[in-house]
């Protein structure tokens, strides 16, 4: 009897473990704040976002969060039939998840844009490329920020 119970407990434990494993596999490894996901959903709608085709270049370590150089490029032929329509950049721990939206087209020649951004904290930045066929592609980059932006007094 005792033995049967322990077997049942073992099986229940194993099932719980498998369930937990499945949850971990579905959600990203880092705890992504909900606001960023909501902001991304607002842009993307119900379309799926696939990893790849987008290259996000950020320094892995930034001494000053007030100015962090950012370059985004998307693999695309940039022809009238197949081009990048927009590039969106999001952060998870800034006061506002949206950073910038670039709108380009076949006249751009290549889908590569650079700017400088502010980061309020050590965090992960997400770039999403919107293609002319309606598909969305993404890339992420983690940045360690030593001096945070937005906190100092004027």
């Amino acid at each position: 009897m005792n033995r049967a119970t322990s077997r049942r407990e073992f099986l229940a434990g194993a099932a719980a473990g498998l369930g937990l494993g499945a949850v971990i596999a579905v959600t990203p490894a880092h705890a992504t704040p909900q606001e960023m996901q909501d902001a991304i959903r607002k842009v993307v709608g119900s379309a799926p976002v696939t990893k790849g085709r987008v290259k996000l270049e950020l320094p892995p370590l930034s001494e000053n969060g007030n100015t962090v150089p950012l370059t985004v490029s998307v693999e695309s032929a940039m022809t009238p039939a197949d081009h990048v329509r927009a590039i969106h950049v999001f952060t998870e721990l800034n006061p506002q998840p949206e950073v910038v939206t670039f709108r380009l087209g076949p006249r751009a020649g290549r889908a590569r844009v650079s700017t400088r951004i502010r980061l309020a904290n050590t965090q992960t930045v997400t770039a999403i490329g919107e293609l002319s066929d309606g598909s969305f592609w993404s890339a992420t980059a983690a940045v360690v920020v030593t001096l945070a932006a937005c906190l100092e007094d004027a």
Binding site: Q96, A108, R116
Partner: peptide
């Protein structure tokens, strides 16, 4: 040919390369 919609997370003295 190019348009950027900015939010407060863009640095002072906005700089763009396109």
């Amino acid at each position: 040919v190019f348009r950027a919609e900015l939010h407060p997370a863009i640095t002072a003295n906005p700089f763009f390369v396109f």
